[in-house]
Every structure is written in structure tokens, then in C-alpha cells.
Amino acid sequence: MSLGPYASFILTSYLAVAAVVAILIVWVVIDHRTQQQRLRELEESGITRRSGKSATDTR
């Protein structure tokens, strides 16, 4: 597979897409961890939901 004279443009665009998608995935994962961590801290301090169920339980 030869990319011709404009290989740098093609590679840059693919890398940029990969980078932004990676940032999105990392953001989603880290956000998930942060929210669960906060919920756990809140539950440990004795704050529970009105239903009495665990807030971190997502099943």
C-alpha cells in the first residue's frame, strides 16, 4: 500500500481521528469511575437513596 505524495496528510487525518476517538473513550471511562467513586463515598457517609437500593449497583 503506497500512499503517494500526500502520505502525511492521510496519516495525519487518520491519527487525528484516532486521537479524538481515544480522548472520547478515556473521558467516558474516567467520568464513569469518578461518578461511581463519588456515589460510593456518599453512601459510606450514610446518605442513601429513597428507594434504599445501592446507587452504585447498575445491574
Partner: peptide, 20 residues
């Protein structure tokens, strides 16, 4: 879907913090 799940959890955190 993953971001929606995070958003729901964020709202739970928010309502629990309000309760606190």
C-alpha cells in the same frame, strides 16, 4: 450509551448531595 449512563450517575450524585 456510556455517556448517558455517566449522566444518570451524575444526577444521582447531585440528588444525594442535595439530600446531604
Amino acid at each position: 450509551l456510556a455517556a448517558m449512563r455517566n449522566e444518570i450517575l451524575r444526577r444521582r450524585v447531585r440528588s444525594l448531595q442535595m439530600m446531604q
